[in-house]
Amino acid sequence: MIQDQSQAKTLLTAAEGARERTRSVLSTNWFPMILFGVLALVSIPVAELWSGMAVAALWLVGAPLGTVATALWYRSRAIEIGVSVKPWPYVVTAVGIVVGCMTTGIAGRGGPLSYAGPLLVIGLGYFLFGLLDRSLLGSGFGAAMATVAIIVFAVQPQHAYTLTMLAFGAGSVLLGLWNLLQDRRTGDVGD
């Protein structure tokens, strides 16, 4: 019986190891993190130099295009590495973010909801992505963005859009670069 139990421990360790490695490969998200982070940073000078309409146009075009580019990236990555994540929870969350941002952005036109609302939706969306990826860093970033959105809505500081997009854009790019570095390291080990 002791032999059975010792074998059980070996099997359990091997299965949990295989599962952990696959989770690590599947939680790679540097492409959308960098893409949307850069889009947020690009929107700052647009807001400062042009108008709210120009920012709205940038996001109306950029967000759906970015979502499609992200879907294509995940698809091509799955074919390249040979393993894919269950897509529907991610698709539903991404569509929820795009629709939520547009709704709060349009509904709050001219007021604090126009910039705090989308950031709150993005924060909650990233929090969900973090949960799906089992990433403490990802869900922590999402929660931080949602908190920033609530604070900005309450305080309504000057240049609120610039501040919120700077926090989101810089954070997203940095997390994306960190994830890219991790991905390259894992790839090296796999090679």
Binding site: A18, R19, R23, L26, V83, V85
Partner: peptide
């Protein structure tokens, strides 16, 4: 191991 990998992935 096969099922462990496939329990978190859609397919492999």
């Amino acid at each position: 191991g096969i099922l462990a990998i496939l329990s978190d992935a859609d397919r492999a």
